[in-house]
């Protein structure tokens, strides 16, 4: 909580209001109307002291130096979701990743394209391409933060894994190689947010396997195949790829869907 928290209403004296009003272009403010009893009648307007808001969102996470050196990769991912109740589901996704773009061919005829901000490289925006609706939904940084928990480019580049969780003291137990990239195995750590095995490549700032848990079950992400290079057309602006599609802001999209 910030310091202005207060549970009481503080009446701002008429004289204070008058002074403040006078400061604005020398006009007569609330207080004068109150004194005169004209217009607003005898009503006394009181400016309340508010409760504080929570601390604002933290700045986007910093990126490791290796993030600037990542090479274009196409990742074949397997996402396995095991709900608390019910049968486990498995789906495959293809992720195309460069130093400033990430494209996800998602399920249900949807694609995502995330773009790194050219003014502040820690920031990110994105486009959801909904083929069924012939729509492109532009997501700004705060949309991604609020709706998807994406804090910045780092979260996208690392496929949702928070590298800071690795900690300094952890030592990799063993390594394996996928598509020429070496990943180190980190044992589960009860202090941290993941469960199960974590395989991580510091050089590529890329996890090849990790598991997260929430109220609805466990979700395990794993990379089955990696190949060098990406299909460039996937990284083009969605509006140019699909010129017949309507482009929405998130708010307009939510308004009617």
């Amino acid at each position: 909580m910030r310091t202005r928290a207060c549970q009481t209403i503080v009446a701002v004296h008429v004289a204070v209001l008058a002074a403040l009003s006078a400061a604005h272009a020398g006009r007569i403010g609330i207080s004068a109307a109150q004194r005169s009893g004209e217009g607003s009648g005898a009503h006394v307007l009181v400016l309340p002291t508010r409760r504080a808001s929570e601390a604002p969102p933290a700045a986007p996470p910093a990126l490791p130096a290796a993030a600037e050196r990542v090479t274009p990769l196409t990742l074949e991912m397997v996402v396995r979701w095991k709900p608390v109740a019910g049968r486990a589901q498995t789906r495959q996704q293809t992720v195309s990743r460069t130093a400033d773009r990430v494209h996800v061919a998602a399920r249900h005829g949807r694609e995502w394209l995330f773009e790194r901000n050219v003014r502040d490289p820690r920031r990110v925006s994105g486009f959801l391409i909904d083929h069924a609706a012939h729509a492109i939904v532009a997501h700004e940084e705060s949309d991604l933060r609020m709706l998807m928990g994406v804090r910045g480019w780092a979260d996208v580049l690392m496929l949702g894994f928070d590298r800071d969780l690795l900690g300094d003291s952890m030592r990799p137990a063993q390594t394996r190689t996928i598509g020429g990239l070496r990943f180190a195995r980190y044992a589960p750590d009860r202090k941290h947010a993941w469960t199960g095995e974590l395989w991580w490549s510091e050089q590529s700032v890329l996890p090849s396997e990790f598991t997260i848990a929430d109220s609805q079950g466990l979700t395990r992400f794993s990379i089955a195949r990696i190949r060098a290079g990406v299909e460039d057309s996937l990284l083009r602006a969605p509006a140019s790829r699909f010129p017949a599609y309507r482009v929405f802001t998130v708010a307009n999209w939510l308004e009617r869907h």
Binding site: H24, A32, S36, L45
Partner: peptide, 23 residues
Amino acid sequence: RALTDAQELDEAIGAAAQMVDLR
């Protein structure tokens, strides 16, 4: 966020009422 934005609206209303001549 709905409540914090509504609170900001009330702040704006208060500022306006403070600046203008309500007559």
